[in-house]
Protein backbone atom coordinates (compact mmCIF):
# COMPACT_ATOMS: atom_id res chain seq x y z
CA UNK A 1 0.00 0.00 0.00
CA UNK A 2 2.76 2.39 0.90
CA UNK A 3 4.36 4.04 -2.03
CA UNK A 4 8.03 4.86 -2.16
CA UNK A 5 7.54 8.62 -1.92
CA UNK A 6 5.15 8.43 1.02
CA UNK A 7 7.33 6.15 3.05
CA UNK A 8 7.86 8.58 5.87
CA UNK A 9 4.28 9.85 5.97
CA UNK A 10 2.56 8.07 8.82
CA UNK A 11 -0.81 9.80 8.84
CA UNK A 12 -2.37 11.57 5.93
CA UNK A 13 -5.74 13.26 6.27
CA UNK A 14 -7.39 14.87 3.31
CA UNK A 15 -10.61 16.81 3.15
CA UNK A 16 -11.96 15.61 6.49
CA UNK A 17 -15.42 16.91 7.22
CA UNK A 18 -17.71 15.63 9.92
CA UNK A 19 -21.28 16.53 10.75
CA UNK A 20 -23.05 15.72 14.01
CA UNK A 21 -26.02 17.82 12.97
CA UNK A 22 -26.42 20.41 10.26
CA UNK A 23 -23.30 22.27 11.43
CA UNK A 24 -19.95 20.70 10.58
CA UNK A 25 -17.82 19.87 13.62
CA UNK A 26 -14.79 19.90 11.38
CA UNK A 27 -14.59 21.10 7.83
CA UNK A 28 -12.04 20.30 5.14
CA UNK A 29 -9.22 19.37 7.50
CA UNK A 30 -5.99 18.37 5.76
CA UNK A 31 -2.70 17.43 7.35
CA UNK A 32 0.22 15.04 7.21
CA UNK A 33 2.22 13.58 10.04
CA UNK A 34 5.66 12.20 9.37
CA UNK A 35 6.98 9.05 10.97
CA UNK A 36 8.51 9.86 14.35
CA UNK A 37 7.05 13.33 14.52
CA UNK A 38 5.22 14.84 17.52
CA UNK A 39 2.31 16.84 16.22
CA UNK A 40 0.08 18.97 18.42
CA UNK A 41 -3.47 20.04 17.80
CA UNK A 42 -4.02 23.32 19.52
CA UNK A 43 -7.41 24.88 19.81
CA UNK A 44 -10.05 26.09 22.23
CA UNK A 45 -12.60 23.64 23.58
CA UNK A 46 -15.09 22.60 20.96
CA UNK A 47 -12.77 23.39 18.07
CA UNK A 48 -12.96 19.87 16.66
CA UNK A 49 -9.86 18.28 18.15
CA UNK A 50 -11.63 15.27 19.64
CA UNK A 51 -13.64 14.71 16.47
CA UNK A 52 -10.46 14.67 14.41
CA UNK A 53 -8.80 12.20 16.78
CA UNK A 54 -11.81 9.90 16.80
CA UNK A 55 -11.62 9.79 13.03
CA UNK A 56 -7.87 9.07 12.97
CA UNK A 57 -8.27 6.22 15.43
CA UNK A 58 -11.10 4.67 13.44
CA UNK A 59 -13.72 5.14 16.15
CA UNK A 60 -15.98 6.83 13.66
CA UNK A 61 -15.72 7.50 9.96
CA UNK A 62 -15.67 11.05 8.61
CA UNK A 63 -18.75 12.32 6.79
CA UNK A 64 -16.42 13.23 3.95
CA UNK A 65 -12.73 12.86 3.30
CA UNK A 66 -10.19 10.18 3.98
CA UNK A 67 -7.44 9.28 6.42
CA UNK A 68 -4.67 6.81 5.85
CA UNK A 69 -2.55 5.57 8.69
CA UNK A 70 0.67 3.81 7.79
CA UNK A 71 -0.77 3.42 4.31
CA UNK A 72 -4.05 1.86 5.46
CA UNK A 73 -7.36 3.63 5.03
CA UNK A 74 -8.91 3.89 8.49
CA UNK A 75 -12.38 3.13 7.13
CA UNK A 76 -11.74 0.64 4.35
CA UNK A 77 -8.85 -1.18 6.02
CA UNK A 78 -9.89 -0.35 9.53
CA UNK A 79 -8.51 -3.44 11.23
CA UNK A 80 -4.99 -3.05 9.81
CA UNK A 81 -5.00 0.65 10.62
CA UNK A 82 -6.27 0.08 14.16
CA UNK A 83 -3.43 -2.39 14.83
CA UNK A 84 -0.99 0.50 14.50
CA UNK A 85 -2.70 2.87 16.92
CA UNK A 86 -2.54 3.42 20.64
CA UNK A 87 -5.24 5.77 21.84
CA UNK A 88 -5.79 7.78 24.99
CA UNK A 89 -9.29 9.30 24.83
CA UNK A 90 -9.97 12.53 26.64
CA UNK A 91 -11.95 11.20 29.61
CA UNK A 92 -9.74 8.08 29.95
CA UNK A 93 -12.56 5.52 30.00
CA UNK A 94 -11.47 2.45 31.97
CA UNK A 95 -13.21 -0.61 33.38
CA UNK A 96 -13.39 0.58 36.96
CA UNK A 97 -14.09 -2.87 38.41
CA UNK A 98 -10.88 -4.41 37.08
CA UNK A 99 -7.42 -4.42 38.65
CA UNK A 100 -4.69 -2.53 36.80
CA UNK A 101 -2.70 -5.57 35.69
CA UNK A 102 -5.69 -7.62 34.57
CA UNK A 103 -7.05 -4.61 32.70
CA UNK A 104 -3.76 -4.27 30.86
CA UNK A 105 -3.74 -7.99 30.13
CA UNK A 106 -7.23 -7.70 28.65
CA UNK A 107 -6.31 -4.74 26.46
CA UNK A 108 -3.18 -6.58 25.32
CA UNK A 109 -5.23 -9.59 24.25
CA UNK A 110 -7.64 -7.36 22.36
CA UNK A 111 -4.65 -5.96 20.49
CA UNK A 112 -3.70 -9.50 19.50
CA UNK A 113 -0.53 -9.73 21.57
CA UNK A 114 0.92 -13.08 22.60
CA UNK A 115 0.47 -13.94 26.31
CA UNK A 116 4.22 -14.05 26.93
CA UNK A 117 4.72 -10.69 25.28
CA UNK A 118 1.82 -9.22 27.27
CA UNK A 119 3.36 -10.31 30.53
CA UNK A 120 6.72 -8.79 29.63
CA UNK A 121 5.21 -5.54 28.35
CA UNK A 122 2.94 -5.13 31.39
CA UNK A 123 5.92 -5.04 33.70
CA UNK A 124 7.65 -2.62 31.34
CA UNK A 125 4.74 -0.16 31.05
CA UNK A 126 4.01 -0.37 34.76
CA UNK A 127 7.58 0.74 35.22
CA UNK A 128 7.45 3.48 32.61
CA UNK A 129 4.16 4.87 33.90
CA UNK A 130 5.24 4.40 37.52
CA UNK A 131 2.32 2.26 38.52
CA UNK A 132 4.53 -0.17 40.43
CA UNK A 133 2.71 -0.20 43.75
CA UNK A 134 -0.71 -0.25 42.17
CA UNK A 135 -0.73 -3.11 39.70
CA UNK A 136 -3.15 -5.08 41.83
CA UNK A 137 -5.35 -2.10 42.75
CA UNK A 138 -8.89 -1.88 41.41
CA UNK A 139 -8.96 0.96 38.88
CA UNK A 140 -12.06 2.48 40.46
CA UNK A 141 -10.05 3.21 43.59
CA UNK A 142 -7.27 5.10 41.81
CA UNK A 143 -7.05 8.89 41.74
CA UNK A 144 -7.50 10.81 38.50
CA UNK A 145 -3.77 11.15 37.96
CA UNK A 146 -3.17 7.43 38.34
CA UNK A 147 -6.06 6.59 36.05
CA UNK A 148 -4.39 8.83 33.51
CA UNK A 149 -1.24 6.76 33.87
CA UNK A 150 -3.22 3.56 33.39
CA UNK A 151 -4.71 5.14 30.27
CA UNK A 152 -1.24 5.90 28.92
CA UNK A 153 -0.05 2.43 29.90
CA UNK A 154 -2.77 0.77 27.82
CA UNK A 155 -2.08 3.10 24.91
CA UNK A 156 1.62 2.19 24.71
CA UNK A 157 1.28 -1.45 25.79
CA UNK A 158 1.37 -2.93 22.29
CA UNK A 159 4.11 -0.54 21.13
CA UNK A 160 1.93 1.09 18.50
CA UNK A 161 3.54 3.00 15.67
CA UNK A 162 1.14 5.87 16.23
CA UNK A 163 0.12 7.25 19.59
CA UNK A 164 -2.97 9.46 19.68
CA UNK A 165 -3.58 11.36 22.90
CA UNK A 166 -6.54 13.62 23.48
CA UNK A 167 -5.76 16.26 26.13
CA UNK A 168 -3.26 14.02 27.93
CA UNK A 169 -2.63 16.39 30.82
CA UNK A 170 -6.11 17.69 31.53
CA UNK A 171 -7.28 17.46 35.12
CA UNK A 172 -4.16 16.10 36.74
CA UNK A 173 -1.98 17.87 39.26
CA UNK A 174 0.97 20.05 38.18
CA UNK A 175 3.70 17.64 39.22
CA UNK A 176 2.09 14.84 37.27
CA UNK A 177 1.64 17.19 34.33
CA UNK A 178 5.39 17.69 34.20
CA UNK A 179 6.02 13.95 34.43
CA UNK A 180 3.45 13.20 31.75
CA UNK A 181 4.96 15.70 29.32
CA UNK A 182 8.39 14.22 29.89
CA UNK A 183 6.96 10.77 29.25
CA UNK A 184 5.32 11.87 26.00
CA UNK A 185 8.55 13.43 24.81
CA UNK A 186 10.40 10.20 25.53
CA UNK A 187 7.78 8.20 23.68
CA UNK A 188 8.02 10.58 20.76
CA UNK A 189 11.60 9.54 20.20
CA UNK A 190 10.47 6.21 18.76
CA UNK A 191 6.83 6.72 17.93
CA UNK A 192 4.68 9.06 15.96
CA UNK A 193 2.64 11.07 18.43
CA UNK A 194 -0.46 13.15 17.81
CA UNK A 195 -1.76 15.02 20.81
CA UNK A 196 -4.28 17.73 21.45
CA UNK A 197 -4.30 20.51 23.98
CA UNK A 198 -5.84 23.86 24.67
CA UNK A 199 -2.78 25.05 26.55
CA UNK A 200 -0.34 26.93 24.35
CA UNK A 201 2.86 26.53 26.41
CA UNK A 202 2.26 22.82 26.71
CA UNK A 203 2.09 22.30 22.99
CA UNK A 204 5.13 24.50 22.38
CA UNK A 205 7.05 22.50 24.93
CA UNK A 206 6.29 19.02 23.61
CA UNK A 207 5.53 19.28 19.92
CA UNK A 208 7.70 19.65 16.87
CA UNK A 209 4.85 20.98 14.82
CA UNK A 210 1.55 22.58 15.76
CA UNK A 211 -1.78 22.74 13.97
CA UNK A 212 -4.12 25.39 15.24
CA UNK A 213 -7.70 24.35 14.83
CA UNK A 214 -10.57 26.73 15.30
CA UNK A 215 -14.26 26.21 14.65
CA UNK A 216 -13.51 23.01 12.82
CA UNK A 217 -10.89 24.42 10.49
CA UNK A 218 -7.12 24.41 10.53
CA UNK A 219 -6.15 28.07 10.70
CA UNK A 220 -2.40 27.80 11.08
CA UNK A 221 0.32 25.24 10.89
CA UNK A 222 3.90 25.83 11.95
CA UNK A 223 6.67 25.00 14.35
CA UNK A 224 6.14 26.24 17.91
CA UNK A 225 8.99 28.79 17.53
CA UNK A 226 7.54 30.35 14.42
CA UNK A 227 4.10 30.47 15.98
CA UNK A 228 5.48 32.17 19.05
CA UNK A 229 7.06 34.75 16.80
CA UNK A 230 3.79 35.33 15.04
CA UNK A 231 2.11 35.56 18.40
CA UNK A 232 4.39 38.36 19.59
CA UNK A 233 3.25 39.96 16.41
CA UNK A 234 0.80 42.55 16.02
CA UNK A 235 -2.66 43.83 15.52
CA UNK A 236 -3.76 44.76 12.09
CA UNK A 237 -5.82 47.64 10.81
CA UNK A 238 -7.28 48.09 7.40
CA UNK A 239 -7.37 51.67 6.19
CA UNK A 240 -8.82 53.13 3.03
CA UNK A 241 -7.50 56.55 2.11
CA UNK A 242 -8.32 58.92 -0.72
CA UNK A 243 -4.88 60.23 -1.61
CA UNK A 244 -1.74 59.43 -3.60
CA UNK A 245 -0.31 56.11 -2.40
CA UNK A 246 3.25 57.29 -2.86
CA UNK A 247 2.70 59.88 -0.15
CA UNK A 248 0.19 58.07 2.03
CA UNK A 249 2.42 55.08 2.52
CA UNK A 250 5.35 56.90 4.17
CA UNK A 251 2.94 59.08 6.15
CA UNK A 252 1.30 56.03 7.69
CA UNK A 253 4.69 54.51 8.41
CA UNK A 254 5.70 57.59 10.35
CA UNK A 255 2.92 57.12 12.87
CA UNK A 256 4.46 56.01 16.14
CA UNK A 257 3.77 52.32 16.91
CA UNK A 258 3.22 51.23 13.33
CA UNK A 259 5.52 48.37 12.37
CA UNK A 260 4.58 47.70 8.79
CA UNK A 261 2.34 49.10 6.09
CA UNK A 262 1.40 47.40 2.85
CA UNK A 263 -0.66 48.88 0.07
CA UNK A 264 -2.94 47.28 -2.46
CA UNK A 265 -5.47 48.54 -4.94
CA UNK A 266 -8.79 46.84 -4.90
CA UNK A 267 -11.53 47.89 -7.33
CA UNK A 268 -10.09 51.38 -7.59
CA UNK A 269 -9.89 51.75 -3.85
CA UNK A 270 -6.59 52.39 -2.11
CA UNK A 271 -6.34 49.96 0.75
CA UNK A 272 -3.54 49.86 3.31
CA UNK A 273 -2.88 47.10 5.78
CA UNK A 274 -1.28 48.60 8.83
CA UNK A 275 0.38 46.39 11.39
CA UNK A 276 0.75 47.85 14.83
CA UNK A 277 2.36 46.56 17.98
CA UNK A 278 0.05 44.35 19.92
CA UNK A 279 -2.21 45.94 22.48
CA UNK A 280 -1.99 49.43 21.02
CA UNK A 281 -4.99 51.21 19.63
CA UNK A 282 -3.68 53.57 16.96
CA UNK A 283 -6.95 54.37 15.21
CA UNK A 284 -6.90 57.89 16.62
CA UNK A 285 -3.31 58.63 15.53
CA UNK A 286 -3.80 57.15 12.08
CA UNK A 287 -6.95 59.10 11.33
CA UNK A 288 -5.25 62.31 12.46
CA UNK A 289 -2.26 61.57 10.23
CA UNK A 290 -4.48 61.06 7.22
CA UNK A 291 -6.69 64.08 7.72
CA UNK A 292 -3.90 66.49 8.65
CA UNK A 293 -2.37 65.74 5.26
CA UNK A 294 -5.58 66.79 3.58
CA UNK A 295 -6.51 63.30 2.39
CA UNK A 296 -9.87 61.74 3.04
CA UNK A 297 -10.26 58.82 5.40
CA UNK A 298 -12.78 56.53 3.76
CA UNK A 299 -12.58 53.51 5.99
CA UNK A 300 -10.73 52.40 9.09
CA UNK A 301 -11.33 49.06 10.70
CA UNK A 302 -9.64 46.40 12.74
CA UNK A 303 -9.19 43.15 10.88
CA UNK A 304 -11.45 40.51 12.40
CA UNK A 305 -10.45 37.12 13.85
CA UNK A 306 -6.77 37.05 13.21
CA UNK A 307 -4.57 34.26 14.43
CA UNK A 308 -3.84 36.39 17.45
CA UNK A 309 -7.50 36.56 18.40
CA UNK A 310 -7.69 32.81 18.32
CA UNK A 311 -4.61 32.61 20.46
CA UNK A 312 -6.24 34.87 22.97
CA UNK A 313 -8.99 32.34 23.37
CA UNK A 314 -6.46 29.69 24.23
CA UNK A 315 -5.20 29.27 27.68
CA UNK A 316 -1.91 31.08 27.43
CA UNK A 317 -0.97 30.46 31.00
CA UNK A 318 -0.68 27.31 33.00
CA UNK A 319 -3.60 26.64 35.22
CA UNK A 320 -2.47 26.22 38.78
CA UNK A 321 -3.69 23.35 40.90
Amino acid sequence: MTTEANDDVMIQASGLTHYYGPQPAIEDVNFKVKRGEILGFLGPNGAGKTTTMRIITGFMPPSQGKVTLGGYDVVEQSLQARRKVGYLPETVPLYTEMAVASYLRYMGTLRGMEPKRIKQRISEVIDVCRLGDYHKTIIGKLSKGFRQRVGIAQAILHEPEVLVMDEPTIGIDPIQVVETRKLIQDLGKQQTVVLSSHILPEVSMICERVLIIHQGRIVAEDTPDNLAQRLQGVDQLQVEVGGPPAEVLPALKRVKGVTEVTHRRQQNREIYSVKVQQGQDLRDEISRAVISNGWSLLNLQQVGMSLEDIFLRLTTQEELG
Binding site: G58, R82, R83, P89, Y95, T96, L110, Q154
Partner: peptide, 14 residues
Protein backbone atom coordinates in the same frame (compact mmCIF):
# COMPACT_ATOMS: atom_id res chain seq x y z
CA UNK B 1 -22.23 5.00 29.02
CA UNK B 2 -18.69 4.93 30.42
CA UNK B 3 -17.07 5.53 27.06
CA UNK B 4 -15.00 2.37 27.31
CA UNK B 5 -16.49 1.41 23.95
CA UNK B 6 -14.15 4.00 22.45
CA UNK B 7 -11.12 1.96 23.44
CA UNK B 8 -12.84 -1.31 22.60
CA UNK B 9 -13.79 -0.25 19.08
CA UNK B 10 -10.44 1.38 18.34
CA UNK B 11 -8.70 -1.88 19.20
CA UNK B 12 -8.27 -4.26 16.28
CA UNK B 13 -11.42 -6.16 17.25
CA UNK B 14 -14.15 -7.12 14.80
Amino acid sequence: KLGTIELLLTSPVR
